[in-house]
């Protein structure tokens, strides 16, 4: 763009960088270290937490953007997690030769195909879901909650119809089993992959949101939908696009989550959705950065307390949510609203 050379900076108002929430994660990790005691256990727990946080982030990011942009909270998001995982499984099972092969390249190829299938499948489903379930109830929160819940029920039942109700094994490719040992520390390969995927999604998302026109439109739309339309943009199409992308991300997250657990049931989405909701509340509805941070915090909390006091692990996340909401009632990074 022309004339964008940065002007003098002498009397500019300073950009406030709100970094305070970022420090919570390392503080939790450091507090946990003496409590856990053994450094190797601590490293394992922390890596596990980062992996879990990455998966939760992948699932939650789409949901929070959909909410921010269109004020729609899709309680049926959990169904996309499960359906994505089932689709990936459907691809992985016939590829068992590749999955069990010793060649990492074949392992990864099988995984890639499975992920693509899962994302295309859940993306298409998201498109249909938006059209049939969500579109008629824009702006009506009560009906939205009810109807997306209804969509969740029907989608879960359809999983039973298509794939059957019993627990299925999720084949984790051979090359991703086991751990890499660095000194005393054992780093599980799949967890590292999950972290890499989560970080990639986060970085790509930041780049899209900050560097592309579509991203600018999404950010502007989250803030003030009407004004974006008054500038001549058809935000509906944009929203359908975000809905599809968010659903596809749920499919990706679901695939990773199922691989992590190595088993699969129709209820797999429900287990993690509770954490997803906590994450987007903590992060601030509509904020991708807040969502990332929230996911890491929730996962750290879950893993440390899961080790230290397994019985109250879930309750600890509720306490975390309560504490953060008392500090910042709109979440860590509230999105500016009209």
């Amino acid at each position: 763009m022309a004339t964008t050379s940065s002007p003098a900076t002498t009397d500019l108002p300073r950009t406030p960088r709100d970094l305070l929430p970022v420090f919570i994660a390392p503080i939790i990790a450091l507090v946990a270290l003496p409590l856990v005691g053994s450094p190797t256990t601590w490293v394992t727990l922390t890596i596990a937490a980062l992996a879990m946080g990455s998966m939760i982030f992948v699932i939650a990011s789409g949901l929070t953007l959909i909410f921010g942009l269109m004020d729609v909270l899709n309680f049926g998001h959990g169904a996309f997690i499960a359906i994505g995982a089932y689709m990936a499984m459907t691809v992985l099972v016939p590829l068992s030769g590749w999955v069990q092969s010793d060649a990492l390249s074949l392992n990864l190829a099988a995984l890639l195909l499975a992920v693509i299938a899962a994302m295309i499948g859940t993306g298409a489903l998201g498109w249909a879901f938006e059209r049939v379930i969500v579109r008629p109830v824009y702006g009506q929160h009560l009906k939205q909650i009810l109807i997306t819940m209804g969509g969740l029920i029907v989608a879960e039942q359809l999983i039973h119809v298509v794939w059957g109700g019993d627990q299925k094994p999720m084949p984790l490719p051979n090359g991703l089993r086991g751990a890499i040992t660095v000194g005393d520390f054992a780093l599980e390969k799949f967890r590292l992959l999950a972290v890499a995927v989560g970080l990639t999604v986060f970085i790509v998302m930041q780049l899209v949101l900050n560097r592309t026109k579509v991203g600018l439109l999404i950010r502007a739309g989250v803030e003030n939908r009407e004004m974006v339309e008054a500038l001549g943009y058809r935000i509906r199409q944009l929203f359908v696009g975000v809905f599809i992308a968010g659903s596809a991300l749920a499919g990706l997250g679901g695939t990773l989550w199922a691989l992590y657990r190595e088993t699969l049931t129709a209820a797999i989405g429900g287990d993690i959705m509770v954490l997803v909701f906590i994450v987007i509340i903590i992060g601030g509805l509509g904020s991708v950065g807040g969502c990332f941070l929230g996911a890491i915090l929730v996962a750290l909390m879950a893993n440390y307390t899961g080790y230290l006091a397994p019985k109250i692990a879930v309750a600890s996340n509720i306490l975390l949510m309560v504490a953060i909401l008392m500090w910042r009632p709109q979440g860590l990074y509230p999105v500016a609203r009209r």
Partner: peptide, 8 residues
């Protein structure tokens, strides 16, 4: 309300 996108 001016409709300025504050985040941008």
């Amino acid at each position: 309300s001016m409709g300025v996108f504050a985040d941008l």
